[in-house]
Design a protein around this nucleic acid. Structure first.
Length: 662
RNA sequence: GGCGAAGUAGCUCAGCUGGCUAGAGCACACGGUUCAUACCCGUGGUGUCGAGGGUUCAAGUCCCCCCUUCGCUACCA
């Protein structure tokens, strides 16, 4: 194949807060298939993946585990890299955001953007609404007041750096409109335009002072660079970008990226903030960003304590690496989420891999051995039925190519399997076992088997980017080299007279769903045991390493300020979800002899049933307000942890409804 | 509440700018075959194309309204 130019593809970098499950690994298998395909198709491919290793969550998790953040991420990054290698991921570069060169460049980038005036510090002082905990731009204010609650906005207390997004918004809108392929699938493009770009972009906070585990802002070391400027930059730092203009030759060659493959949850950051950062740096924008759907396990939430998380290494142990690759690639639709279960895995393995492909290779080799001692020769005894077989087989590359151009990887695989199905049909059409009984048809029989071996070779050549091990195993049994794409378009390349193996190996063994039950059960038990172990460990270290949370201090208040607030114990006597709202619960709260209706955003943490009967802390004299159209006459108080989990405040000893809290 | 997507055979889904008797895979049933991993090949669907209106010679495909599910977003006192 001629050189078609460079192709730079990336995945999102994986967050090192824990071991990723199969739903996370899906992305990198998809990226690997595309990378291998493009490479084989004549592109000079550079494929980068890696890990995102900073942030408060990791700082906390490391503290919980009683190790330094660096030790923590070293461990997880090792696990993630191990999974990549296990899955045969052909990455050219595995970048870690704790890599020295990355950290240095992020600092330089930050400084440069600051010097250019794209990043500014505390410019929002005076436009911060404390009750709403929101920053507002001048244009968003209504009569100079908070557009949400109508109250005065005050100077911000949190010192932070912001990126002036609005400066580039129009250019980005223009770019998106002129490049319809930029955001894939297109439905995502509309979401970005309608929700963020057209209503007006807010500036983005790009630094934090509330935790330390990050890249320090070198000219103001109270601050660390907040996630996106750090993480997204990996796409350029990994290939030798330099913010001072001394980028490497490699960077000049590879940038802009041809494809950023990411999950649909982070499309906003890749299609809005990242392009704008690049514009600010004067670099070209990536050609395409594909926000792929998710691979879900049933509709069941995966959790370790339930023992139902599917990890790539467990799956590979039961089914084999290529079966896992096949499954995630085949089962994933282009736009909607796919689902994975053990039963579905078994079904796909049996029908596609064992029956259609494995059995085809096996029966072909068996016949060659049986009739010709394994020697496959083209005797030129053609017949009419051969024409269609050859047409289908040699035409498959073009079909696959068309699908891959549109990133329709699942459909590309289907085309390849259609080739194998056509081969099975060809066996029925030619009936080699009948030919074998007639000595006069020996040449014809040889030719039929040659045609089959040649067809399988072509199919294996096409299959290689998706299932590299399988392709290699097939060609080893056929005693020939793997085919390049060019030679999959010509029939008759397999060397006539080659002897295939006389001990055909089963490529994929059929499985019965029951056979894997025991293995699945063992995996579940192991996961449960691990969580139990982790919990025990947490308890052991909880006294010395208990995680703590620091929040931004608010202004000092006087006793008079405090005395204005009336807190009482309230008993929740009824509770129901607020219709048409996703997060709100509406409770009837008995406070002394009166009953107040209070709406709270805690649906994700408590069910209405759980709420009823609780005696909780209530701020009683808060001005009533309507939430989602429902009147709320007070506030239930909760504690909130770093992950946003909520816990209602209750009295330490039983207290009657209405008791004052003072 | 705003914006958007989807609702097609038991299951998973294709059906582009409207056009001939609405398709594929899996599962199921029957028939054929035996080289092969009880495999392969063939045959089999009266599906209200979510409900109801409308445009048109013609609508799963366009318009209106409704229902359901999902995504993004807002609210979250």
């Amino acid at each position: 194949m001629q050189n078609k130019g460079k192709y730079y593809i990336t995945t999102a970098i994986a967050y090192t807060s824990g071991k990723p499950h199969i739903g996370n690994n899906y992305e990198i298998v998809l990226a690997d298939s595309i990378a291998r395909y493009k490479r084989k198709d004549g592109y000079d491919v550079f494929f980068q993946t890696g890990t995102d290793e900073h942030g408060q969550k990791i700082e906390l998790k490391a503290a919980e585990a009683g190790v330094s953040p660096k030790e923590f991420v070293d461990n997880i990054a090792g696990v993630i890299k191990g999974l990549c290698d296990m899955l045969n991921i052909s990455y050219d570069k595995f970048i870690r955001t704790t890599d020295d060169f990355h950290e240095k460049q992020v600092q330089k980038i930050f400084k440069r953007l600051y010097n250019q005036g794209d990043i500014y510090k505390g410019a929002y002082e005076g436009l911060y609404c404390t009750p709403c905990e929101s920053f507002w731009t001048e244009s968003q204010l209504v009569d100079g007041k908070c557009p949400d609650c109508g109250r005065e906005v005050k100077p911000a207390k949190e010192e932070a750096y912001f990126f002036k997004m609005s400066r580039y918004a129009d250019r980005l809108i223009d770019h998106i409109n002129k490049h319809p392929e930029f955001i894939q699938p297109v439905s995502r493009k509309n979401e970005m335009m309608n929700n963020f770009l057209l209503p007006g972009l807010q500036d983005l906070c790009v630094s934090r002072t509330s935790f330390k585990w990050g890249i320090p802002v070198d000219f103001d070391d109270k601050h660390v660079v907040y996630v996106w400027l750090d993480a997204l930059s990996n796409y350029i730092t990994g290939i030798g970008y330099d913010a001072d203009g001394n980028s490497t030759e490699q960077f000049g060659k590879l940038w802009p990226a041809d494809l950023h493959l990411i999950g649909k949850d982070i499309i906003r950051f890749h299609t809005i903030y990242w392009p704008i950062f690049l514009m600010a740096l004067g670099e070209e924008l990536p050609h395409q960003i594909f926000g792929h759907p998710w691979l879900l396990q049933n509709n069941d939430k995966m959790s370790k304590s339930k023992g139902n998380i599917m990890y790539a290494d467990d799956l590979a142990e039961v089914f084999g690496v290529d079966a896992v690759r096949y499954f995630v690639l085949h089962e994933m639709p282009f736009e909607n989420d796919g689902s994975i279960t053990w039963d579905l895995m078994v079904e796909r393995l049996n029908s596609d891999l064992a029956n259609t492909l494995g059995n085809l290779v096996n029966r072909t080799i068996s016949m060659s051995n049986q009739y010709f001692g394994g020697v496959v020769s083209d005797k030129g005894a053609a017949a009419e039925v051969d024409a269609d077989l050859k047409a289908v087989v040699t035409g498959t590359y073009d079909k696959v190519e068309a699908k891959m151009d549109g990133l329709r990887v699942a459909d590309a695989l289907t085309e390849i399997f259609n080739l194998f199905k056509r081969c099975n049909k060809y066996i029925d059409e030619t009936e080699p076992w009948v030919l074998a009984k007639d000595e006069a048809k020996r040449d014809r029989l040889a030719t039929v088997l040659y045609n089959l071996v040649e067809s399988i070779s072509i199919g294996a050549g096409l299959l290689e980017p998706f299932m590299p091990e399988t392709a290699a195993r097939i060609m080893k049994q056929l005693n020939s080299d793997i085919r390049d794409f060019a030679s999959t378009k010509t029939f008759g390349v397999y060397a006539s007279g080659t002897k295939v193996t006389d001990t055909p190996e089963i490529l994929f063994a059929r499985l019965k769903p029951k056979e894997i039950d025991a293995k699945v059960e063992a995996i579940a038990e192991r996961q449960k045991a691990e969580t139990a172990g982790e919990k025990a460990q947490e308890n052991d270290t909880s006294v010395i390493n208990a995680p703590v949370i620091d929040i931004e201090p608010k202004d000092e208040i006087t006793y008079e300020d405090f005395a204005k607030m009336q807190f009482q114990i309230g008993e929740i006597i009824a509770c129901e979800a607020v219709p048409k709202s996703k997060k709100l619960l509406c409770s009837q709260v008995k406070i002394g002899s009166q009953v107040k209706q209070i709406v709270s955003g805690i649906k994700a943490h408590y069910t209405p049933e759980e709420m009823v009967g609780k005696k909780v802390m209530v701020l009683v004299n808060l001005k009533p307000a309507k939430l989602a159209g429902v009147l709320s006459e007070g506030m239930l108080l909760c504690a909130e942890d770093a992950d946003g989990a909520l816990a209602l405040m209750t009295a330490e000893k039983p207290m009657p409804s209405g008791a004052e809290i003072c």
